[in-house]
Design a binder for these strands. Structure first.
Lengths: 229, 229
DNA sequence: CGGACTCCTGATCAGATGGACAACAAGTGA
DNA sequence: TCACTTGTTGTCCATCTGATCAGGAGTCCG
């Protein structure tokens, strides 16, 4: 397929146990540059979309020659994919499952807070995801069809259980997930708009806290729940 | 600036009154092609972003030679601007003002319904707008700074009045507008994701009705209001 | 050392892209 | 019909883009 024999091979895990291994580790530099490039790619793809992004720009953001970038990711497409693998992995670590015997108010509040925190911590990832979906998700269609669907279904089922038990108002669980998803995503994706409207130069930590509190309060009350604490 | 003497000149309004005027109307063909091109541009820009979109693609979507497209809009940038002028004009027609003596529940419900209807009727415009904001709003910054800010401030003031009069729960009015904005926008922007999760091929009218009902119910209850009707 | 690997990069290329332009066609009012 | 404006399009060009490649530099271990 490709002429590059070593490119695109995932970095081998640093062996566990002995922290300061004396062993020959081919992937050391690779790992560092890979991360630099992916960080640059996030910014570039988020700003210009897949087609609009250029390898040259990514290289400049990473402070590397274009050729070097192409040494690590033999094609633009592969780079884009690798980037999303990274992002989805990061996300999976954060979103814990919810269970039928959880307290609805607490579980939803945690979900909202985590999602807002995500918008604060990884705004580029959030925008990238939005961009990809808006453009028709050419690269993530499969992921949406399988993982994402399961994820939503699983959570919706738990919420439905809570409703059946009369522990919250009877609202469409899937729509509720969309509502939380969109309203939290908004703080990352529409950052510029929000800053303009509020006449600020940049976000502060308390803005996110305020947003999370607002969303928790309104959405929980909208579900017939009392905000915890 | 430009060598084109006639391009980029807004279409002169067709004179009112006599429908079938015999007068010399330079803009007749112009108007028709202009619309065709702008419609094609909406699709192309929404799918690929500003940088990713190509005049060639827009021309093909419109069924015209590239040269002809460039005759109407001398540059890509001008075409993009003209497109947003169109879109913003369309939007302004729909969003009626709210007044302090309106009924909060009814006014908010109308706003939500209008916005969802907008997502249904002009999904491309919605995505285009989202795209532009995500990319840092290079073309709309001024608009956000002036018109949009005023628009939000005006509505927020009215909502604050309602709160002060004890007619709804004390929630941050600006955040409330963001919440409505994002949750309704979501149905246009994240269409692909929603369809995938719900395992559908395309939206139906009732999906939007259902979404509007859900949002109205949850958000109004979240504001301590009863849904009207 | 030296050999084997990993990593780096300038030069190069074919194709796409935004845009200019000139010649030509069609429409319009008198 | 005529003079003039408006509309159409093929051709051309400088620049950019993703990708290739060949040669060289750096790193590591025995």
């Amino acid at each position: 397929m490709t002429k590059h024999s070593v490119a695109d091979i995932p970095v081998s895990e640093p062996e566990p146990g002995n922290g300061k291994s004396r062993k020959y580790r081919p992937g050391r530099i690779r790992e560092r540059n890979r991360e630099r490039i992916l960080a640059a790619a996030e910014a570039e793809f988020a700003q210009n979309g897949y087609k609009g992004a250029t390898i040259q720009n990514i290289a400049e953001r990473a402070g590397l020659p274009k050729s070097n970038v192409l040494y690590y990711f033999s094609t633009k497409k592969r780079m884009y994919s690798a980037m999303f693998d990274d992002i989805l992995g990061r996300w999976n670590k954060v979103f814990t499952d919810i269970r039928p015997d959880d307290d609805p108010a607490e579980a939803l509040a945690t979900f909202i807070r985590n999602k807002v925190e995500m918008s604060r911590k990884y705004p580029l990832a959030s925008r990238l995801f939005a961009m990809e979906i808006i453009q028709g998700a050419p690269f993530l269609l499969d992921h949406l069809r399988t993982n994402m669907r399961e994820w939503v279904r699983g959570r919706a089922d738990v919420i439905q259980t809570w409703i059946d038990q009369g522990r919250m108002a009877p609202v469409d669980p899937v729509q509720l997930i969309f509502l939380i998803w969109s309203s939290t995503q908004h703080y990352a994706d529409f950052q510029v708009q929000i800053l303009m409207v509020e006449n600020k130069a940049e976000y502060e930590k308390r803005d996110f806290d305020h947003a999370a509190s607002f969303l928790t309060e309104v959405i929980l009350r909208g579900c017939g729940l009392e905000s915890p604490t």
